[in-house]
């Protein structure tokens, strides 16, 4: 059951045609999404993340190839049938006045209600459950203009939940949110996959979040999509290749990208403390300013004291009592 493939692609090409010119952006072959999987779509700006996601839900057309939804070619489904299997959350901020959280989430029932759009007991139950799942029960009757961006994005996810689909596609669902709202959104995604067996496909720029929250990565690399688990992909070294700028390298320890800097200034550091945080902070401060630690160096010498939460640096016979002053001195010294 858990290994059931819900979506797979065969030689599909996503792109767009404008003014009789077809732009092929990305080729999607031999990748699949399974039930209850969380999949992160990664790629640089303009790689075609949005175009690809929009093609799956029919806002765009695939230029060629086949897409199978639950093992049946997606072309055989009507748009209403697709709406019962795949729902969508976009990154755009929705502004609509005179609309309560409940009313907005209720719009998700569209494919399930009859032509008058009247909500049944069952519909109302689903809407309320969706609002509860994203943790906004107390805002049910609030206008969506009165809630925060993070809450509004959770409402949009609730709307997709009310649509009651097996697959939810999210285009950069947390790109404009602050850290705590980001984690709230990804926490909800995790819960949906675990408790409700939803398959979630989302695009993001945040590699760290993708690695932490997803079961599988789809990486757009040289106009192809490569799929694998986050760990397999890290091991393959692929993450170091996707940016053109070779100074951006992937750091396995922090599970994030960092910018490689040229370190050309040797400095000898003597730590008179065992505090490991202080050591990390000093290394970071030195690196940022182009220094590397060389214990044999006798020309440039830094001594660090940390006692009773009091910092003391000795550098070039001067004393400094916080990082800011030390860094200013380092900068003056090097220039």
């Amino acid at each position: 059951m858990q290994n059931e493939i819900v979506l797979n692609f065969e030689n599909a090409i996503a792109g767009y045609s404008a003014k009789h010119k077809i732009s092929e952006i990305v080729k999607i072959d031999n990748i699949s999404a399974k039930k209850a999987e969380i999949i992160a779509l990664i790629g640089i700006n303009g790689a075609g993340k949005s175009t690809f996601l929009k093609s799956i839900i029919g806002l765009n057309k695939f230029i060629s190839g086949n897409v199978f939804l639950k093992n049946i070619n997606i072309k055989k489904y009507s748009s209403k049938q697709i709406a019962k299997i795949i729902s969508f959350v976009s990154s755009e901020i929705i502004t609509a006045g005179h609309l309560t959280v409940f009313d907005l989430v209720a719009l998700g029932r569209y494919p399930h209600t009859n032509s008058t759009g009247k909500l049944s007991e069952n519909d109302i139950q689903k809407i309320e459950n969706a609002i509860e799942t994203v943790g906004l029960k107390n805002l049910t009757n609030k206008s969506i203009n009165e809630i925060s961006d993070g809450e509004r994005q959770r409402v949009m996810i609730a709307r997709a939940l009310a649509q009651d689909t097996e697959i939810i596609i999210m285009d950069e669902p947390a790109s404009f949110l602050d850290l705590q709202n980001k984690y709230a959104v990804y926490g909800i995604m995790k819960k949906l996959a675990e408790n409700q067996n939803k398959t979630i496909i989302f695009s993001t720029h945040d590699i760290n979040i993708a690695l932490k929250f997803s079961d599988k990565l789809w990486i757009i690399y040289e106009k192809n999509i490569i799929e694998n688990s986050p760990e397999d992909i890290i091991l393959s070294g692929l993450l170091n290749n996707i940016f053109e700028n070779k100074n951006i390298i992937f750091d396995t320890k922090s599970l994030d990208y960092k910018i490689e800097q040229t370190l050309n200034k040797p400095i000898n550091v003597k730590f008179n403390t065992d505090n490991s945080d202080i050591k990390i902070l000093i290394e970071n401060a030195l690196k940022r300013n182009g220094f590397y630690i060389d214990l044999k160096n006798e020309k440039t010498f830094l001594e660090v004291q940390y006692q009773n939460k009091k910092l003391e640096f000795q550098f070039n016979r001067n004393k400094y009592f916080n990082f800011y002053e030390l860094i200013s001195a380092l900068k003056n010294y090097s220039s």
């Binding site: 839900i57 806002l59 019962k84 569209y110």
Partner: peptide, 23 residues
């Protein structure tokens, strides 16, 4: 009056309407 349901679905914009199966 016959378009009421479709009009409501357009509140969130055409993209959302389409993904909900609106013609």
């Amino acid at each position: 009056i016959f378009s009421i349901k479709q009009l409501d679905s357009l509140i969130l914009g055409e993209n959302y309407a389409k993904t909900m199966g609106v013609n």
